[in-house]
Design a protein around this nucleic acid. Structure first.
Lengths: 239, 239
DNA sequence: CGCAACTGCTGATGAGATAAACAGTTTTGG
DNA sequence: CCAAAACTGTTTATCTCATCAGCAGTTGCG
């Protein structure tokens, strides 16, 4: 997780923002960072982020692993490109109509949808503070724009964004976990354990008995948004 | 991230819950899973989760890497033990007084404190749905117990827990990122980029100009809790 | 034309997890 | 008391990956 790989932040920036000058001499490049990222995305979608090995991505193009290093400084930067690739295009919330609340809700829904479509995205963005690419920034911009009409202070606006973005991450993670194959086995084992130690976890035992962990018709994301945005509304009203 | 390592879930369970029978024959074990986990925690605290290599942990005890496999099925299980180790003891909120709100707030504060003290904890628990050990369950139990007086349905209670736990994770992550050494460099670079593309990110540019990202006297955790719990209160009042 | 700037390749290195087989230790059943 | 069983720790050996170095072929500019 915490690999020191400062390398040269600047190299990554140039790549992420497409601010590189095209070479004139030499053989024509047969690849582009973008195509490489897309191939990597395909692998990650199908087999998870761990399956994205330089050699495997390279194989998609029939070249050796080292060939990729002509296009991408290293794996970390490749993952960044994958993220950018998947975040395009940034959401356009102009059709959602007026009001900060519907707009930020729509933002959250779209964000959640992308994260669900690319289960590795959470892990890819969970890592160290990364420099954000244009698309990541565009998503941030869209959220802030949505919140502007709420009339919060700039600092509050930022904090609300963090809450909503965090909510999306949390709930998508939950859902992905639940959908996972081992999930049933996990639930069974945990239930068994709990039965054996019910006295140590009284509140949990009660909650389970009352169906707290049973499948639920309410979308947890909608529930969370309602709570958070109600809280924000309270803040606005109070001002 | 997504390594298939079902191995035998049961082995991990037994280990995590200390449900293993002590061997009688053979040489006395010189270590215990618990001592190993503590050494690993020390390493992770000092150098990050990536620095926790079997060989490095083993070196702490002057034994070979493979010796650890006599105590722990593999690295994944070791990380689980580290988590359990760090989550002990479970929080006792009985001294906090009455009321669901102060109690769940206290729960969140203590959870945040532990996560801040062990920056690797977030990464360690971010992974695949893991089987929870007794201490992890005890934390869950404590949170549910705190929420009981609120009079929510069991399902709502669970959802609120998820919101609060997610909030803690989100905000600790933020704070850890910010404290990181490269942070300043990151902020500078991002600012530079933003200046060069201000027109593409109007809302963001406005927000920054208005100080949205400036250091803030408000604790983001308290802010988030206030919003979420206000939202929960609204839900309760409505019922 | 000849070199500089490139592209892709092969081979090497080093980190890490972990499997396999072995040697020494201790306990217990006969 | 002794030998086999049950263990502990060790050495060796694989495997998977990222990534560095150095090489060979390509191409466009001066």
């Amino acid at each position: 997780m915490a690999k020191e790989k400062a390398r040269d932040l600047r190299a990554g920036v140039a790549l992420l923002w497409g601010e590189q000058d095209q070479p004139t001499r030499g053989p024509k490049p047969s690849l582009t960072p973008h195509r490489i990222a897309e191939a990597a995305v395909a692998i990650a979608d199908a087999e998870g982020l761990d399956a994205v090995a330089m050699s495997k991505v390279a194989a998609e193009f029939g070249v050796s692993a080292m060939a990729l290093y002509r296009y991408v400084p290293g794996k970390a930067e490749l993952v960044q490109l994958m993220v950018e690739s998947v975040l395009a295009p940034a959401p356009d919330l102009s059709a959602v109509g007026e009001g900060w609340r519907p707009q930020i809700i729509e933002w959250a829904r779209r964000s959640a949808k992308i994260h669900r479509s690319h289960p590795w995205l959470l892990a890819a963005t969970a890592m160290r503070r990364q420099l954000m690419g244009p698309n990541q920034l565009a998503w941030l911009d869209a959220a802030l724009a949505a919140l502007e009409p709420a009339g919060l202070t700039a600092a509050q606006q930022h904090r609300v964004f963090v809450l909503v973005a965090g909510l999306v991450r949390t709930l998508v993670q939950q859902q992905l976990d639940f959908d996972e194959e081992h999930s049933q086995e996990w639930i069974r084992l945990t239930g068994e354990l709990l039965g054996r130690h019910a006295d140590r976890f009284p509140a949990l035992t009660r909650a389970i008995a009352a169906g707290a962990f049973a499948p639920d018709t309410v979308d947890p994301l909608e529930f969370g948004l309602d709570r958070i945005l109600d809280g924000v509304q309270t803040l606005i009203d109070r001002a």
